[in-house]
Design a protein around this nucleic acid. Structure first.
Length: 946
RNA sequence: GCUGAAGUGGUGGAAUUGGUAGACACGCUGGACUUAAAAUCCAGUGGACAGUAAUGUCCGUACGGGUUCAAGUCCCGUCUUCAGUACCA
């Protein structure tokens, strides 16, 4: 074989790697470990397009590089195979989601295999596989059986909590729980009924059942977590989302808020991603301030309004309070005169959807309750209003309004003609509020007059605490995560109900398998799809019922009918890969002690507030409970940018069956119509016949072409998607140019983290590079394989070591795009030199092999090697090959390079000085500079650059 | 609004600690081979001006300033684009 027949080569080596298990990782090794992970894909029906493998190629290059460097590398792959699309498809077609999922996975695997990844497939996981979700259910049980001790900042087993209750009650206990939990003594606890005890414990468990206001998406028939909603509509499908009260499982992630925030500082993630998580956690430091209610006789009632503020320093500027319309005290405090108006206001706001409320931001609405509260420091009477700019879900649902220091309070006060009190010295607040905290001097404010923001804040909090009407408080925006979905294709909960209270199904019955149902829709009575199943916990593989207690979920004990959300399975999969076949544990201690956590994680940034936050939460929890030994799952994270598609548009003359080439449009009014990109060549010319066959409705259309007879389309960069007909399939590229070309071209497209459009046009550059590489190993005359054993020339060794240096730097910095250029330069130069020395060509192959593994393996074996190139040690860079006898010292005057001095490399500082002196300039060394960099002062400064 | 990232030829993008901007590739132009096309190979390719030419001079990294012998790179200000997020008190 003398030509570069990439198809044969690639098939051959892919088979070789699979048969020899070349990339199988061992859980024990003398080598240092390295764990490279990709975010595992959801196997969608559309298959992979060229954008999907981008991150996988990058991680594969890194994994292969680390193997060459002598690491024991874990580089697994699997599938996040529970999810909505398979279920929507099931609803439409009646096909079981398990079947579609299996087919999609097979298709994915086929496509992935063609690209030549070095995955260890023996560790594959699928989240929808019962042997996997058995452990997802197990983790859920551990969460249910745990509570969070605030004092120790750690989760503990619920049995400890019961001990504490029995001995001390919950008074003085610093635990994170439902804020409405009241206090009890040990005696009271011990006298509680079993049912009451269970209810109390539910308020402490890390996963709990609660009636919460949830984001209900009627079109999808399920609730959504906050991060699954983008701009008021569902992330999947873009359907409207409403607020609805439902009893749901929740995860008490909020108790981990501070640790999730602190942990970010230890991670090697991009600043923007960390910032996104910080914003999502949304820590704000301030004070809780209590305002006591007064009636007409000025007596303090037992009603207290608790507000949260980040600006305690402005407390003397309070001129009113605003409550959220849904605030529980609204009803109690409203005076009879104001009642009708208040109720009217509440009904109108309740009718508004989240979206309308967001769109309505500029419209100021609100109503006076008629009630007053007493200012905790001045004792003045403060009117209480309600307004929908205050959200019930944030802080306490009530704000102390300081119109001089907050723009929304200012707008509200102006609108309703409420007085505005200025407490800032020399600041004009007639046109807008003064919201800056910097350089302010507080005035008009009793004991904090003349103070800065910081002084005033501290003094006010001190005073509030002394008077028992306020404390320093920290608020987080992070909400507990809703964990129930009213869907079929997800993990069933290991839960049944007894007297309306949730009970854990014993571990020995896990996994609780998904039951078979006839239709994947909610029941007629509105229960989730699982309500259609009467027989549960049926082990199809063993063909028996796993637990007699659970035969019939209606008659014996009702089972939980919700399923877990998509992020359940993906929150811990990185640990399953370490020990994927373990039947006794989710992963063995030995395996986890060895692999620890993911050293490099590559995936899209769209998971910033979902997966990447939830998995950190679960890992911290599992660590607390001693099931894990690491605090963070992903040490280093890289977000690969999206590869966009270049859509093609055919222009149709409005209201006519005429298609016009873009050069002929002129003044015609046209509509763009998506054309499949495969009908368009690099010069934007459309294959008219193919287009007509593809869209029979344009069979008789008239084509107005350019003068040369071609028909041109317009182009636009869009997200790659089936509906835009701009999908480029990696299989086609592999077929036409080979996987090695695809891999290198995807890297060459641009920096890994940037979004960039795919353009098949440029691929020939990379392809011809690989052909040139191939030819480097062949003699020109007979075109046969020929590599010489003779020593390499100095020049070619120099090229090799320049390349080694650059490639190592590039891989370490994830600048794979510039590496490709480096290879191209090296191969061109070696070609020019007619270098065929094994001394240079063999190391070059190893350098290339992470990028283009197939061609490297083939040429490597032709060099006479029996072992796979993937075990060869990476070439070491040696400075000596780059050192020349003569070094060039360009000399600049006034910033312009004037001439170059060529001096022996081993010249000392003094000798260089002498030479420069002889150039009739006055010379002066700057202290601390190396001899290579000489600063000379001849009246003007001259600089020699080495 | 806030937070983060970025702005360099026709295009994607290179450029250690400030040191000859535009590497490499696409595209384009010209040439070789070919009946022709494709493929392949070779040369040229930021702009302006001068010169028959080799070449030379000037201008150029979003815009306006500044520091420096020297700025794509450092500092100040402005604009634009992208991403995330938002009545968050």
């Amino acid at each position: 074989m003398s030509n570069y027949y990439f198809n044969e080569i690639e098939a051959k080596w892919q088979k070789f790697w699979a048969e020899n298990q070349t990339f199988k990782a061992e859980n024990q090794s003398d080598k240092p470990k390295y764990y490279v992970l990709d975010m595992f894909p959801y196997p969608s029906g559309a298959g992979l397009h060229v954008g999907h493998p981008l991150g996988y190629i990058a991680s594969d290059i890194y994994a292969r590089y680390k193997r060459h460097q002598g690491f024991n590398v874990l580089h697994p792959q699997g599938y996040d195979s529970f999810g909505l699309p398979a279920e929507q498809y099931a609803i439409q077609t009646g096909q079981h989601p398990a079947k579609t999922t299996k087919e999609n996975i097979l298709r994915y695997r086929e496509q992935l295999d063609k690209i030549g990844f070095s995955f260890d497939w023996s560790r594959e996981v699928q989240t929808s596989d019962p042997t996997y979700y058995r452990w997802t259910q197990w983790i859920f049980i551990q969460l249910f059986e745990s509570w969070y001790c605030k004092q120790k900042e750690q989760a503990f087993p619920i049995s400890h909590l019961i001990d504490i209750f029995e001995k001390e009650g919950n008074i003085g206990l610093d635990a994170k729980c439902d804020p409405n939990q009241s206090n009890f003594t040990a005696e009271i606890w011990n006298n509680f009924s079993e049912e009451k005890k269970q209810k109390v414990l539910l308020n402490y468990r890390l996963t709990y059942l609660a009636e919460t206001e949830v984001n209900w998406c009627p079109k999808l028939g399920t609730v959504l977590a906050n991060d699954e909603i983008i701009g008021g509509v569902s992330e999947r499908g873009g359907f409207p989302v409403l607020k609805k009260k439902m009893t749901q499982w929740s995860m008490r992630i909020s108790v981990y808020g501070e640790r999730l925030l602190q942990g970010l500082d230890t991670l090697d993630w991009s600043e923007s991603l960390k910032e996104t998580q910080r914003n999502w956690i949304g820590k704000s430091v301030g004070a809780a301030v209590e305002f006591k209610m007064v009636d007409d006789k000025d007596e303090v009632k037992e009603l207290t309004i608790k507000t949260f503020t980040t600006r305690p320093d402005t407390i003397f500027g309070v001129t009113f309070l605003t409550l959220a319309p849904e605030h529980e005290l609204v009803d109690k405090i409203t005076t009879s005169e104001q009642r009708i108006e208040v109720e009217k206001y509440i009904t109108t706001t309740a009718k508004k959807s989240e979206r309308e409320r967001m769109a309505d931001v500029k419209n100021i609405t609100g109503v006076f309750t008629g009630a007053y509260a007493k200012h905790p420091l001045t004792k003045e009477l403060i009117p209480i209003w309600i307004g929908d700019y205050v959200l019930v879900g944030y802080g306490t649902g009530a704000v102390m309004a300081v119109p001089c220091g907050d723009q929304r309070d200012w707008d509200f006060a102006k609108h309703f003609d409420i007085p505005i009190k200025n407490i800032f010295k020399n600041v004009d607040i007639s046109e807008q509020a003064h919201t800056s905290k910097e350089d302010i001097v507080i005035t008009n404010s009793d004991f904090v007059n003349g103070c800065s923001y910081l002084d005033a804040t501290n003094k006010v909090i001190q005073e509030l605490e002394k008077r028992y009407c306020g404390t320093k408080e920290i608020n987080y925006r992070l909400r507990d995560a809703v964990f129930s979905r009213q869907r079929y294709w997800g993990e069933p909960f290991p839960i049944y109900y007894k007297d309306g209270l949730p009970q854990i199904i014993d571990e020995k019955f896990l996994p609780i398998r998904l039951p078979e149902i006839e239709k994947y829709l909610p029941t007629e009575s509105g229960e989730p799809p699982l309500g259609r199943a009467s027989i549960w916990a049926w082990d199809a593989s063993e063909n028996k019922i796993v637990s007699n207690d659970l035969i019939d979920h209606l008659k014996v004990f009702p089972l939980e009918l919700n399923t877990m959300p998509g992020w359940a399975g993906s929150s811990w999969y990185m640990f399953r890969y370490m020990d994927a076949l373990n039947k006794a544990e989710f992963s063995s201690k030995e395996a986890m002690d060895y692999w620890e956590n993911v050293d490099l994680y590559i995936g899209g940034s769209e998971h910033a507030t979902g997966h990447l936050l939830y998995s950190r939460f679960w890992v911290k929890f599992l660590k607390d409970r001693g099931f894990l030994n690491v605090d963070e799952p992903f040490k280093k994270l890289i977000n690969q940018g999206m590869i966009l598609g270049e859509s093609a548009f055919v222009h149709r003359v409005e209201a006519e069956n005429k298609l016009v080439s873009i050069g002929q449009i002129g003044n015609l009014k046209t509509q763009p119509i998506h054309a499949d990109v495969s009908f368009v060549n690099a010069s934007n010319e459309l294959d008219m016949v193919a287009f007509k066959n593809w869209r029979p409705d344009f069979k008789d259309a008239e084509f107005i072409t350019e003068e040369d007879g071609s028909f041109k389309v317009s182009r636009e960069v869009e997200k790659m998607s089936k509906s835009k007909y701009n999908v480029v399939n990696p299989d086609d590229i592999c077929e036409q140019y080979g996987a090695d070309t695809l891999r290198m071209y995807e890297m060459f497209l641009g920096p890994l983290e940037q979004a960039k459009p795919w353009s098949t046009a440029g691929i020939t550059g990379v392809y011809s590079f690989l052909k040139k590489t191939w030819r480097l190993f062949h003699s020109g005359l007979e075109d046969s394989f020929f590599v010489s054993d003779q020593a390499a020339s100095k020049d070619s060794l120099k090229i090799l070591h320049k390349t080694i240096k650059k490639v190592i730097e590039d891989i370490e910095n994830f600048s794979f795009n510039t590496s490709v250029s480096t290879f191209m330069i090296a191969v061109n130069e070696l070609g020019t030199q007619k270098c065929n020395s094994k001394e240079v060509l063999a190391p070059l192959l190893i350098l290339l092999s992470p990028y283009a593994p197939h061609i490297s393996e083939e040429l490597w074996s032709k060099l006479g090697n029996k072992e796979s190139i993937s075990t060869a040690p990476f070439p070491k860079f040696e400075e000596k090959y780059l050192i020349e006898d003569v070094k060039k010292y360009p000399i600049s005057f006034n910033g312009k390079m004037r001439f170059t001095l060529e001096l022996p490399i081993d010249m000392s500082k003094d000798e260089i000085e002498a030479v420069v002196m002889s150039h009739e300039k006055t010379i002066h060394y700057l202290e601390g500079r190396t001899p290579k960099k000489v600063i000379v002062v001849p009246g003007k400064i001259v600089n020699i650059v080495g």
